[in-house]
Design a protein around this nucleic acid. Sequence first.
RNA 1: GUGGUCGUAGCUCAGCGGUAGAGCCCCGGAUUGUGAUUCCGGAUGUCGCGGGUUCGAAUCCCGUCGUCCACCCCA
Length: 431
Amino acid sequence: MAEPAFQSLPGFRDFIPRECAVRNYLFETWRTVARRCGYSEYETPILEDTGLYLKKSGGELSAQLFRFEDQGGRDVTLRPEVTASLARIVAQHQRDFSKPLKWFEIGQCFRYEKPQKGRGREFYQFNVDILGEAGPAADAELIALAIETMLAFGFVAGDFVVRVSDRKAWLDFAVRHGIAEDSIPEFLGIIDKLERENPATLATKLDGFGLTLDSVRGFIANPANASSAYQAILDDLTARGFAAFVALDLSIVRGLAYYTGVVFEVFDAKKSMRAVAGGGRYDTLVATLSNGATDLPATGFAMGDYVIRNLIEETTHTAMQMEVWLQRNAATCDVFVVVADESQRPAALRLVTDLRRAGIAADLPLTPAKVAKQFQSAERSRARFALVVGAEYPALKLKILASRAEESGHADSAVAWLSERLQQPDGPLIA
RNA sequence: GUGGUCGUAGCUCAGCGGUAGAGCCCCGGAUUGUGAUUCCGGAUGUCGCGGGUUCGAAUCCCGUCGUCCACCCCA
């Protein structure tokens, strides 16, 4: 049998330079916004005790774990999300910090799912959390950061909307309609599917709770049912000038079991209303994971790299902004040294070293090549100048690649010469 | 987990029962130290893998692995 060529595992990506650059654009934007808003970066291990995820994440997630036994017989899991790890370390270290904690992490997560558009088995998540503040001001601050992030990518009003809801409103609803406390998760599951499942099965399921589709829809449609927290959040965000980005939507309850209050999702306003980020309040998770040792209210959200990248690339103005960044941050070469006479290669090597040490990006061909070819290499390196080291060394020729103009100089003053030359514009193009 | 789609050169794909093709890319060359265009020349594939049908399979059938897409769920 033929040896099959190795390839990456299903749902896993190779980041060739262009992909890596795109990823860095996302990371840098996330980091910049988070720092600007006063969040500190932290990091947790990507491999954790499986129990961490079985304890409170709930639902589908536990069926999608990259889970295995290590050589020491431990039951371990590649993290499917970072909130559980965060709750763990916060429970352990929170005394060292004044409240509220505003923390963020950019990390890779793993879920054993079937890959498709906007989803792989591995993805990066921008995770932002505020811990130790139970009031709506924290939720508003967090949503503000979500909005700032979208704006930083170049999205504008009309491109996206943050749909905000509150599980508390549904808990009140459940109490009023006599729904037992232990069947509330099931009830919320039905609400979560309101927009996707067909009305007949919905009606059947709701009938089990003595409810009708109309009564539920009526509850969602009535703004008066918004919680007081929602109103406070809306006022807060309005004061920040973000009212245009926020909308009440009680049909949002979110899948994860640990949410306890305000929940929200950032939606793409054009394309089928995909959620590009989501989050909410999880006031009991820290206590649960620390077995009650630490009790901290918390609110957080996550944005994945797949979905936000798709949205950026599908939106003309955000795609252009990213291209500009990629151009600006591409590998650059200020000066490409052309070795026109191989016997002068030692001098060229010395020159390259001097230039580099002076902070000038310099490159040269590693093997002998014809001058014409070296100029092609210079073009491809997108260098601004080609510095020709030839038989006449220490006399040097500097060619401005864009204008094809040429000037002369001397090796002894090359660094100063090039430094000064790099400060100046090239002048009119001589074609 | 369910359903569909597609796997042929590095890339995009054509060929759909009779000895593997095109374009792009790449490499070399066109008066010995200058980039473009053009021209000339060249390389490369176990036709995803395994079985079956057939005188003969890239082509038909089955399986398998992988891709992409939708559902489920979610970032």
